[in-house]
Design a protein around this nucleic acid. Structure first.
Lengths: 228, 228, 228, 228
DNA sequence: TATGAATGAGAGTTCATTCAT
DNA sequence: AATGAATGAACTCTCATTCAT
């Protein structure tokens, strides 16, 4: 019962690689459309393979979901790194957020992770680098330039990003042009210095490790509320 | 097999009325704690009645969820009406939002409706009055007083309210004091006039009818994305 | 998710009681014929009910198996108690063993417990009283009367009984008259004093608690070999 | 699709022969440790080859099990032949039984065949020679020397041997020193002449062909109980 | 010939919903 | 009207066996 290899960079036979990618693609489609509650049977059917084949490639539904989410998060990280290279700090931050939110738009699977706390433990680890790396960099630069209020931190984006992503998943999308950009602009406006301090404080780096999200569904039923 | 009555205002026998309320109360507890995925059996047990009794009072799980959500939304409406009576428009808006978000905090069932699009059609109808009534009133007053930017509308809150409610349900809650208030303050800051117009436009009243949310789970599998 | 009641002596509705008994009877038939690997579906079909009905009465396959095994073991205990009332100690012991082995004859489900270690923990508890109670009583009486060798103990029967039961489950049964009685007689002959001490020693009472059997299949995969 | 050869004594290419033996060795390890329920995948992995390779050498799991059991039984036969050369008949018999039981101790795969009736038909044929050859020889010698009761036959050991082997697989093993030897001694004591005839009669040679065991599991579901 | 991959047919379990008392 | 009981349709995951390279 060895764990069936998942992300190990072994060379796969041509057809297997094809099926693996088909499965991830199908997962992308199905999870994105129906959320992470979608059944593996559905995904396998979508990929044109048998469920058992899915289980050859991924130890369980969970792992397939990760593979799919990983692909998407990798793209988000690339975006963050690119944005960090933009000169104007506010523009860089805005660019990253726009791109990231675009990526998440109407993707229910991603949404389930960001918002509904699917696989929170794993997600935290993915998020950590993004937040404490390029994002904080952008924030600090903006604060030094005086265009971002001094009382926010990169860690606030562990809340703001999921929060904004929920916008892209609303029905409004279908009707209103660029809703994400609109509400992002509103939040960015709120990030400008205005002399009035925000209540509360940002999450600390340590809190990020346990605090990103706690709602659990599907496999992760009712994790006891984390203590601080 | 008569069609089982649902919410028709028939006179119920005393014990029947009692059971009905017990069920709603149990739904409140259970749905709030475990989200709308909770089983009817659980709720019935919590209410001290049998599942079949639940089906005598409510056509299906769905309807029971509505009854529970209704109660909560009614409270939100009351809050909005009360806030409309506050003199300072910004303070009134802030008060309503704070109270409403408080109400939603850690209420997974409500969250499932607001964010996950459970029973979207019905939810829209509930939201309509709230948005176009007291909330728009607060917004307009604020704009006349010059404390709210002119390019937002009450309908923007059909997006902002769910968006902010997602904050209250994050793990951060457990660790950071008053996270909801913090990010609400950020958004409120963004709502102040700053000379820079927001991109896009608010949803129209008509769009509200179809646009609030479209994600479907559980019973409501895959409603085709609404067209505009 | 309360554990669905199993053996609680609640009054069941007539039909439920009937179905419950049908299920146990079907379990008896099917488990006896095919062993404890038989599927719940098979048993339910045999009982003329849906599988889910089986799950209403028993938390899982395991519990149904226990209910069935319990019934059989109860009969064995009754036999032991009756045998303890026989005057001649050897005759009493022989009577009990004969009856018990008869009971077990060709019952694969029982065999799986006795021999294959299904649900060993639970079985130990059932066995304990039988061994240290009436069986030891019979043995001691026999030793005092000088008809049983002094170097055996009641606890030896925790080995001998399963061992002999394996005889009744062999194909020989179908062809040879009274095979169980034959090999039981052989063992009983060996139990008479002969001046030559047996090698080793009987299990202690404490060892009985962990020592009855350790083979695990089905649910009980690979329990680490118990340490002493 | 030619019928895949199984145990035909064709000359195999060197590497094929090597793989075949590797598979049998792996089967030995795995089946002995986990019983005949072990999966072919496990065994193949243990052998360092692919499952499909196993299917090139053996028609099915069944056949691989046979190959493994064959090897073990061959050793038992060798033991019997060696024991037949011991002068003292009782000592010879005891030596064989001890060695054979040692061989079976804690070998779950063998146990599944001896006790659980896996592949009974085939097993009978293997047993036949052993019983009617060296074992009967030992018994007859003992009877002529007056140290074995006259009313047993070699065929009784088709029952006694499996019966005793069940002892070695009990948890007692882990705690009690030499349990097999202990209960074997008890049975041997019973085999000594004591003037009291055993009830019943030994299986006849013919009965041996159908009578050894009839329990079937796994692939061999429910062979109808053989008639005599 | 040997392999990695693929598959169909379950098995155990759960849950919204309906039936019978 | 209320209950206890029953059900069918899923869903996740496993395994002996076959296919394609």
């Amino acid at each position: 019962m060895e764990p069936r290899a998942a992300a190990e960079p072994r060379r796969l036979r041509a057809d297997a690689a094809r099926n693996r990618q088909r499965l991830i693609d199908a997962a992308e489609e199905v999870f994105a459309a129906r959320g992470l509650d979608a059944t593996l049977d559905d995904i396998a059917r979508h990929a044109g393979v048998n469920v058992a084949t899915a289980y050859r490639h991924f130890a369980n539904k969970h792992e397939l979901a990760r593979a799919y989410l990983q692909e998407t998060l990798d793209r988000a990280v690339a975006m963050a790194e690119e944005a960090a290279r933009v000169d104007d700090p506010m523009a860089g931050l805005a660019q990253f957020l726009e791109q990231a939110l675009e990526l998440m738009a109407a993707n229910r699977g991603l949404f389930d992770m960001l918002i509904n706390g699917y696989d929170a433990e794993w997600f935290k680890d993915q998020m950590q680098g993004l937040i404490t790396g390029p994002i904080r960099h952008l924030v600090v630069r903006g604060q030094q330039a005086g265009v971002i209020r001094p009382d926010v931190d990169g860690t606030d984006f562990a809340v703001l990003l999921p929060m904004l992503s929920s916008v892209s998943d609303r029905g409004v999308v279908a009707c209103v042009p660029e809703p994400t950009r609109r509400y992002l602009a509103l939040v960015l406006a709120g990030l400008r210095p205005d002399g009035t301090p925000l209540p509360g404080r940002p999450p600390t780096d340590a809190e990020l490790r346990t605090a990103v999200t706690h709602k659990a569904r599907g496999q992760h039923r009712d994790p006891p509320p984390e203590q601080c």
